[in-house]
Design a protein around this nucleic acid. Sequence first.
DNA 1: TAGATTGTTAATCGATTAACAATC
DNA 2: TAGATTGTTAATCGATTAACAATC
Lengths: 223, 223
Amino acid sequence: MNTTNKGIPIPTIKRFPSYLRLLKGYREEGMQTVSATVLAEELGLKPIQVRKDISCTGIEGKPKVGFTVIKLIDAIIHTLGWDNATDAILIGAGHLGSALARYEGFESYGLKIVAAFDIDPSKCGSFLGDVPVFPLDQLSRYIEENHVNIGVLAVPAVQAQEVAELLVSCGILAIWNFAPKDLKLPERVVVQRTDLATSFAVLSAKVKRKMSKEELLGEEDEW
Amino acid sequence: MNTTNKGIPIPTIKRFPSYLRLLKGYREEGMQTVSATVLAEELGLKPIQVRKDISCTGIEGKPKVGFTVIKLIDAIIHTLGWDNATDAILIGAGHLGSALARYEGFESYGLKIVAAFDIDPSKCGSFLGDVPVFPLDQLSRYIEENHVNIGVLAVPAVQAQEVAELLVSCGILAIWNFAPKDLKLPERVVVQRTDLATSFAVLSAKVKRKMSKEELLGEEDEW
DNA sequence: TAGATTGTTAATCGATTAACAATC
DNA sequence: TAGATTGTTAATCGATTAACAATC
């Protein structure tokens, strides 16, 4: 019953990878336990927030001592569902796709890109790192034969919707969309966007905010 | 006084690029006006939310008609501060850096990557698309001479903190961090993370959620 | 023991959503 | 005019933060 993470807030989910990276570092250093205070300090969060987040994993700490590092690591990995590796296919073998295929970090998230697909026939037969590139028309067969559930979409914006629908028709359950395009897909399909425009918009807004704040304060800064 | 966007909620900021893409499409098609209802429908949002978001730009609509497409476009671009182009430098000319340097979309965000830097001397002198690659030890001089304010960080995680500090010491105001590492930097520096792990964590959580929900419902799905 | 740290319960804060009057 | 759509004000919802008792 508490194996479902139905209730874990998205903001908490988003902080888990940061905890995980930090904790893995501590584990390498041989640290046995760590307090929420220390984690918070390191990540620029409030201790209370870290405790709330940790409580979502089901792990309990010891007052005055903190939490067991390896227990926390395991619990976060489990809560995220990163403990059993999932195969994914990549669509689009351009520069971004190439970078994603070669990204070293995925394996620690339990994600493995097993194949890439591209319309450009000249790319097919080649490899992106260890990932073989196939022609797009083999997509359907590959998904069926290999029971892949996740598609990573790194095609140009204009093709994104079309390719996404193709993926859905092939039975893909979740799409990680890197194309700067909002997809319209059936409710049942999980879509996660990683949009550079969105990210840069937040950066821009923060910069603009800071600028106007400095103006108001008469920019008493050191330079 | 209302040129500051101090009060605009981050979630609203994050939706602006989606509105912008859609509106630009409408402009190409020659549409003059659009209603919040239509925008909402297209993006899977509620009309009321779209109206709230739009109100942050200061644009007013006409009942029964909607909003003027080009007015909205201009207002969103202005609100995001994307109306005057900003130069940025890229640190790290690996696969990800290469993909970022070649990304076509940045110009429409008012972002221009003017130079890349890398420690690897063999990469220096080459180009990533149109972007020249320089040795890292020329970073400081380049920033000074060209008054660059934004740094795009695409180096390996282990080097991220060090390079970020270097950027800050060179006077960089904002860092867009693609390295899977949480940076500890002075308050005054704007940091925006684009973290694949975070994004994938959300995807994982949504999939897990959906899975357990289907279990409960006895998976009455079509396949 | 004393004090740091945990976990819980309640208060606050901010964003989303609802309700509804105004208006083209 | 009638009805769709806007903008505002209030209600709801969810996450963060505060307060504090429990405990090692």
